[in-house]
């Protein structure tokens, strides 16, 4: 079944992720408007990047209350893989599908550049094409990517192996200098306890084409395509 990409007013990476999904799976995803109340049959739901509702109020806060999000939550709880990228991560956090919040970058500035990511979990449906400890080069582009969780939550994330990606240097070392936004523990992406919901600030769909400078993001979409085809 094709993937579903949710489109909010102000989404702007919906087409980019659709291109990556189609390149990996050979099938265009279904584009689902936020005012729908039901999802088409699909084995993967993607909440794309952008500025839903202009990021007014708080990034992701208003989109989290869109009609479609009730259906997304129900499917997430039923085990369907849900991938939130950038604004999608912010929306999933605001919707309570992932713990913690994304605050304004420590620099207080928007940051767009390639970063190195260390794969902390290679046993999820999203990351199965990577190996644990592998370093990926993928871009970030956000103003509010500074992940924060209280100490108890952070402990739970660590104990449960829910940290999927960390910002690191090219050698895979997790350093303060490699952290583009001030995220606690250099966290770039997390999964829920069940492992079927991934939120990440970096954009794997932006480096999934050799002409654009890299392909480290492509294996995520290939792995997902294989998983949903199986």
């Amino acid at each position: 079944m094709p993937a579903a990409v949710i489109v909010f007013p102000g989404s702007n990476c919906d087409r980019d992720v659709a291109v990556a999904l189609e390149a990996a799976s050979g099938r265009p995803p279904a584009m689902v408007w936020h005012q729908e109340s039901a999802l088409p049959p699909s084995d993967l739901i993607v909440v794309p990047g952008g500025f839903s509702y202009g990021d007014y109020l708080r990034s992701g806060a208003m989109a989290a209350h869109s009609p479609i999000m009730r259906a997304v939550t129900a499917r997430a709880n039923a085990g369907t893989p849900v991938l939130g990228i950038c604004n999608g991560f912010q929306i999933l956090a605001e919707a309570g599908l992932l713990p913690g919040i994304l605050m304004r970058n420590a620099s207080l500035k928007f940051v767009c550049r390639d970063v190195d990511l260390r794969v902390e979990r290679a046993d999820t449906v999203f990351t199965s094409a990577y190996t644990q400890g592998e370093v990926l080069r993928v871009p970030v582009a956000h103003h509010d990517g500074n992940y924060f969780a209280d100490p108890d939550t952070l402990q739970r994330l660590q104990d449960g192996g829910q940290i999927a990606f960390r910002y690191c240097d090219a050698g895979g070392n997790v350093t303060a200098a490699a952290n583009p936004n001030g995220s606690i523990e250099n966290i770039a992406g997390i999964v829920n306890a069940a492992g079927n919901v991934l939120g990440m600030m970096p954009h794997p769909e932006r480096l999934a084409d050799p002409l654009l400078g890299g392909t480290d993001g492509a294996p995520m979409f290939t792995a997902l395509a294989e998983a949903i085809a199986a």
Partner: peptide, 25 residues
């Protein structure tokens, strides 16, 4: 300056800022 600009959204930026001309597919 240009790291404060999203120069990659739309997924077609072949030559990014900092060089002579930008190239967009």
């Amino acid at each position: 300056v240009w790291e404060q600009y999203d120069h990659m959204v739309m997924g077609d930026t072949v030559v990014r800022p900092g060089g002579d001309a930008a190239l967009v597919r």
